[in-house]
């Protein structure tokens, strides 16, 4: 059977693409729900804001770890 499709070039780009899916969904959920929460209870703005920021930082960290992970794993053969 002949080859239908093949991957050429740097495979780590695919790795980062996969790694960015999760944080992308996560950041969307965090800000979406955060804005909804603020719209429902404007008086709780301070608390919601803090938690939104913390959640965003932790999620964003995952995305950026995904960015450097190929460089880390390069050394391990």
């Amino acid at each position: 059977m002949s080859v239908l499709a093949e991957v050429s070039g740097n495979v780590t780009a695919i790795g980062y693409g996969l790694a960015a899916i999760g944080p992308g969904i996560g950041v969307g959920i965090i800000f979406g729900q955060g804005v909804q929460a603020i719209a429902r209870q404007p008086e709780a703005y301070g608390v919601i804001r803090q938690n939104m920021l913390l959640g965003f930082v932790l999620t964003e960290a995952l995305a950026l770890i995904g960015l450097v992970a190929p460089f880390i794993f390069q050394g391990i053969k």
């Binding site: 803090q50 920021l53 913390l54 930082v57 932790l58 960290a61 950026l64 770890i65």
Partner: peptide
Amino acid sequence: GVGLAVYLVYVKYGR
């Protein structure tokens, strides 16, 4: 580094 950066954001804006 990631941990420290998260902590830094928490210190500067999250408290």
